[in-house]
């Protein structure tokens, strides 16, 4: 990597966020909310590629990295699960709250490589959040991609995120099939019951590209299911999450071997993962 000549560089602090505001909050599930973020003058804070990340902060509490799950002309969306100190505080904020936002970070999904191909999206729980950015991109640019297959699972109906997309919007998209499963039977649910890896085997999608994101146990059992169906290492693509502080490969926290998830990731192919130490 080349090191910059000090004369060429404009002075800047990449770690200082801009002030944005929450323009809408959607309740996705019992513990997931989508926050719609604009700048104070109603513009889009930044234009991420599908799969890229943003650093979202309540400066009094803290700052953390989240995937941008969707974007519009003047907003970005982040779907956030209540899991810790910052996300607890985020779940208490209301529309109109001013927040810190910076990004985009990371590599995003390899759009050129995906173009024209059939894609199967596999997600579990909140893992649909990063995958959704690519699904939305494929839907907006429908002619550029082949058949879309979405396989999504959660513990219960209450834990399913983006229900409107799953049951209303996506099934109406041309050449797009949506399969939803929950872990255990539940009253009022007449859909599929069972774990995602088994459901993959049952559906047996034709191998071309698989985009997968979810809890480690889902990934662990889904990968053999995918290779059983003939998916190759370069065609299984995942997006990782580690603790991050800076987002630009300097604070040191999110390294896996010599790669930084915030800079070289978060999107990696299975081939790349197999070459990296298993420290994630």
């Amino acid at each position: 990597m080349k090191v910059a000549n000090t004369d060429e560089i404009k002075r800047s602090n990449d770690l200082e966020p801009m002030v944005g505001k929450i323009v809408e909050i959607l309740e996705e599930s019992t513990d997931v909310k989508t926050f719609r973020i604009s700048t104070l003058d109603d513009k889009k804070p930044f234009s991420p590629l599908p799969g890229q990340l943003g650093m979202f902060s309540l400066p009094m509490v803290g700052e953390a990295m989240f995937s941008v799950t969707n974007q519009g002309e003047n907003y970005i969306d982040m779907a956030i699960k209540k899991t810790g100190e910052l996300t607890d505080a985020l779940h208490d904020i209301e529309v109109g709250q001013e927040i810190g936002i910076r990004g985009p970070y990371g590599n995003g999904f390899p759009l050129d490589y995906l173009k024209g191909k059939d894609i199967v999206f596999i997600a579990g729980g909140i893992g649909l959040a990063p995958v959704r950015s690519l699904i939305m991109h494929c839907i907006k640019n429908r002619a550029d991609y082949g058949k879309l297959t979405i396989i999504y699972g959660a513990r219960s109906v209450d834990d399913l995120c983006f229900k409107d997309d799953l049951f209303n919007n996506w099934p109406k998209v041309e050449n797009c099939q949506v399969y939803v499963t929950i872990d255990r039977p539940q009253e009022g649910w007449d859909g599929h019951v069972g774990f995602v890896p088994d459901y993959i085997k049952e559906i047996a999608p034709n191998p071309q590209i698989a985009i997968i994101c979810g809890p480690p146990v889902m990934i662990k059992f889904s990968l053999p299911a995918l290779s059983g169906l003939g998916f190759a290492g370069d065609d299984v693509i995942t997006t990782l999450e580690l603790r991050m502080k800076c987002g630009i490969g300097k604070c040191g926290r999110c390294n896996i071997g010599h790669k930084y998830v915030c800079l070289d990731g978060p999107v990696f192919t299975l081939t790349q993962l197999n070459e990296m130490p298993n420290e994630y």
């Binding site: 990597m1 080349k2 090191v3 910059a4 000090t6 560089i9 002075r11 800047s12 602090n13 990449d14 630009i248 490969g249 300097k250 800079l263």
Partner: peptide, 18 residues
Amino acid sequence: DKVFLDERHVDGQYLEKR
């Protein structure tokens, strides 16, 4: 310098001190 003056993200505060 390699880290903080990496041309992908130059750290302004570090650069000023250097």
